[in-house]
Design a protein around this nucleic acid. Structure first.
Length: 311
DNA sequence: AATCGCATCAACCGCATCAAT
DNA sequence: CATTGATGCGGTTGATGCGAT
């Protein structure tokens, strides 16, 4: 409160990042892991504020980021998740491990908004309106609940894919669970160390080519996203999510899992038994990268139908 | 060739939240 | 319990590219 903005300092550089700055940042994070952003500018000599460094890393340099065109499946997921969760881009991004919240937000604002508007102007004018009113009518607590369930699953899944499962929920505080995209705990530095090869290749690539920022960083991202490390963890995650569904009793015993979430979401307690079927459908669809025919089935169910039991 | 308008997206800003003290 | 600092999130902006005129 009343804290001056960190970027107001004199001598802080703003604007687009240069390849040189990227290299410095990547090298530093490669060595120390992400986190403690406050110290990054000091230790690297970058004339950037900590926020800017974090943003650059999470939105652009972080391994495993997929850039470029969104697939149909991703697009549909975003549309559905936006209807379900609202503009909670970070939450939506947690369902699309290779996309950043910024990316999704931009994609929504530049493409999907218009697309939906166009389709709205078509025959089923009020369909989207209904969807919107439904999404608005749906309580904020429910949105958070669903997001938090997924976040917790992601975190658990992430932890299971690491070597030390004992570090899953340090001190059982859910809010401190690292975001799947923004790992911060020290034991996760191994994850970044394992992507050393990719980063090294990036550095090589940068050195070889002319300093054309955009193409260089894109090639890096492609290289990294196509690398085994990032992709593998994503696949593992997706598969484990299915296992986790049963682990968290999402299918047959959701009410029980909800009660767990109620404990997690302090004070936000409200019976949620009616949500079992539609949310299960949605979740199954969202996690089901492997069976597109099922996705089609779900896509045929209007949002109204799929959320009919919510209210 | 010049310029205008629009689209895109990386980056910034301000606020909220959380943890440490 | 209050304060402070670090981090995360969502809205917005501004630079850039590209097509139309």
């Amino acid at each position: 409160m009343g804290r001056p903005p960190c970027c107001d300092k004199i001598g802080i550089k703003k604007g687009p990042w240069t390849p040189e700055e990227d290299i410095i940042l990547v090298s530093y994070i490669q060595e120390h892991g992400p986190g403690n952003w406050r110290s990054v500018p000091t230790n690297t000599g970058l004339m950037r504020c900590s926020k800017s460094c974090r943003l650059r890393w999470t939105n652009y340099l972080r391994p495993g980021i997929k850039r470029g065109n969104f697939t149909d499946h991703e697009e549909k997921m975003i549309i559905h998740l936006q209807a379900l969760l609202g503009n909670r881009w970070a939450a939506i991004a947690s369902y699309l491990p290779q996309r950043t919240d910024n990316d999704i937000k931009n994609f929504w604002n530049t493409h999907l908004k218009k697309k939906l508007k166009k389709s709205k102007n078509g025959s089923d004018d009020d369909n989207d309106e209904k969807g919107n009113s439904i999404s608005q009518a749906k309580g904020q607590w429910e949105r958070r609940l669903q997001t938090d369930i997924h976040m917790a699953k992601q975190a658990l899944c992430e932890a299971l894919s690491l070597d030390k499962p004992t570090q899953i929920f340090p001190e059982t505080k859910l809010p401190s669970i690292p975001h799947p995209h923004h790992p911060t705990t020290p034991n996760q530095t191994s994850l970044y160390a394992s992507s050393t090869q990719n980063i090294a290749r990036l550095l090589e690539n940068w050195n070889k080519k002319s300093p054309n920022t955009k193409t260089e960083t894109n090639s890096f991202s492609n290289m990294v996203s196509s690398s085994s490390e990032g992709t593998q963890s994503t696949i593992t995650c997706t598969r484990q999510d299915h296992a986790l569904d049963s682990l968290w009793s999402f299918n047959s015993d959701r009410s029980q899992s909800v009660s767990v979430e109620e404990n997690i979401n302090l004070g936000e307690s409200k019976p949620n038994h009616e949500t079992q079927v539609p949310l299960m459908l949605l979740e199954n669809w969202l996690f089901d990268d492997v069976a597109p025919q099922c996705n089609g089935d779900l896509m045929n169910i209007s949002l109204e139908e799929s959320t009919a039991g919510l209210f």
